[in-house]
Design a protein around this nucleic acid. Structure first.
Lengths: 111, 111
DNA sequence: ATTGTTAGTTCCCAATTAGAACCATATCTG
DNA sequence: CAGATATGGTTCTAATTGGGAACTAACAAT
């Protein structure tokens, strides 16, 4: 199956998943909602390899979910920030959060 | 990264994604909401290989999102139906659907 | 000039996925 | 009963994707 084909699927769930349906993407977007924006911040937060992070960020920029912005000149530094489209994924993240809290509570050791 | 480790993550989004965050799982669950329940129904709907479908269904049963039920004796036939836990993923699917409709509309040919 | 930092890219090996073939159980046809 | 068909898988091999380390580039600090 080619996942890009899903972007033309009749089902809107499938179309959305063609962009955010892989293992890392929604975690990156979650981090954006937490205010992270720099390459190294994502990397430290997620433990993702630079290789994959680079690729995923590129896809998210192409999908106009993130916007790449140079925030300083010397040295040139970019940050990745949510677009309006990206911010609209808040509902999805809230739903995932709610399900996790309800159905996968963390048992924490006493104390 | 071992995705099973995510199930212990402090973040409920990450915990949820440890189960449903791969490429096929949410599409299978979507099909369950549409009323599909048999192995071959999922296979025809998704174009997934039997191998992967088998593996994903097993994981979903282990995660108690689907329940495997024998619905006839001779020949023995099973169906996979959503549990209460599984039905609670409705919000997530609705959020994905809404985003897809809004941000990835299908351009259909005229007529 | 050397070291450090950020943001990547390249390379190679491991793990996952795809696709086809195979197997088990049971029904149907004759 | 033999042979064909259907469902629900498992097994095998090849291709794709992911992981991890090393390398590169631009610049700052010392």
């Amino acid at each position: 199956m080619k996942w890009d084909d899903l972007s033309e699927n009749y089902c809107p769930v499938a179309r959305t998943l063609s962009i955010v349906g892989d293992r890392w993407t929604l975690l990156i977007i979650r981090d954006c909602f937490f205010g992270l924006s720099k390459f190294s911040e994502f990397q430290n937060s997620l433990g993702i390899t630079r290789h994959l992070l680079s690729e995923r960020l590129k896809r998210l920029v192409e999908a106009e979910i993130l916007e790449k912005r140079q925030y300083q000149d010397r040295p040139p530094r970019d940050e990745y920030v949510l677009t309006a489209r990206g911010r609209d994924l808040a509902d999805t993240l809230h739903a995932l959060k709610k399900w996790g809290r309800t159905h996968m509570p963390v048992r924490r050791s006493a104390g």
